[in-house]
Amino acid sequence: MDIEFLGTGAGMPSKQRNTSALVLDLTDENRENWLFDCGEATQHQLLHSAIKPKKITKIFITHLHGDHIFGLPGFLSSRAFLGGDEPVDLYGPAGLKEWLQHTYQLTGTYLPYKLNVHEVTDGLILETDEFKVYAKEVKHVIKSYGYRIEQKELPGTLLIDKAIEQGVPKGPLLQKLKAGQDVELDNGQMVYSKDVTTERKPGFVLTVIGDTSYCEASVELAQHADVLIHEATFTQAYAEGAKEFGHSTVVDAATVAKEACVKHLIVNHISSRFMPSEMVDFHAEGAAVFAALSVADDFMRFRLKNGELSCVKKQ
């Protein structure tokens, strides 16, 4: 599973950071890409990435502030011209559907594919063969949701020599055993998956939290996550202003990560007041609370593999 950040800024675009957007690349899991938030110029950011708009099949919006949604009408329209004719499922707070309907009606825009808009409330909002996705309201100045993505258990490793010893021929029966299915051989003998595979493995857990002050809901969403992505608009020097406007400091984000016992924290939604030269101190302030912390830049790509997080593409 890869995570690529298309926009890591707060409020408005700057020369260093565009507005909020990130892509969860699930090519290895289900051949889909999922987009979280779609700030202004997200489709322009995609031009500098290997991500194909037509591969984005699900979009999750945290809240309806412009720096998280103003790129959505343009992206959805352009997707059709770029070979995207498969349906898109869009998840977000109440009001999202009405806003899009008015926008497209007033501009005479037609989408040649089906757009399914799901206005979310707390709880399970999506279940597929591979994943469960939960939403929970966090603490912002308008209704804002965090999302928890849980990958279902993965099959164990096939002990191929052991399967062959039991008479299983090379071919599709081995794949069925690997997938957890028991099989019957031509001679009527049953071969049980549990006897020729290792134990099933837990899937990953990813939590994405957009704009929020520190709150218990964030800690609950992030419990034991492999990766927590959390806004960190300010440093502690601006803590009072952060709280007033429903935002978090990098220390707030690190505190959530620590209390939730996550493995890795990536912070984004960084105020434009912080220059690149200040990022070392910015990082150090959060890392003093939670050491496994990374600060995202636009176009950074992180890979989670075997529980370990690494940066595989820098700005």
Rank of each mutant, 00 (worst) to 15 (best):
M1E: 06
F5P: 02
G9S: 07
G11I: 02
P13G: 02
P13F: 00
A21W: 04
A21Y: 04
L24Y: 03
D28I: 11
N33S: 13
L35H: 11
G39C: 00
Q43T: 10
H48L: 15
K54M: 15
K55R: 14
T57A: 09
I59L: 10
T62I: 09
L64D: 06
H68N: 14
G74L: 00
G84D: 13
L96K: 03
K97W: 00
W99V: 08
L106G: 00
Y113L: 03
K114R: 15
L115T: 12
V120F: 00
T121Y: 11
D122K: 11
L124K: 15
L124T: 08
T128Q: 04
H140V: 03
I142G: 00
R148I: 03
I149G: 00
K152Y: 03
G156N: 09
L173K: 05
K176Q: 09
G180Y: 01
D186A: 15
G188I: 12
E199A: 10
G203E: 04
V205N: 02
I209E: 01
D211F: 05
C215G: 00
S218R: 03
A222S: 10
T235G: 09
T249L: 07
A253T: 09
A253M: 10
A257W: 03
A257T: 08
A260E: 01
H264M: 06
L265K: 07
S272R: 10
S272I: 02
R273H: 08
D281Y: 12
F282I: 09
H283K: 14
G286D: 06
A287H: 07
V289W: 07
V289C: 08
A292W: 07
S294Y: 07
F299C: 12
S310K: 13
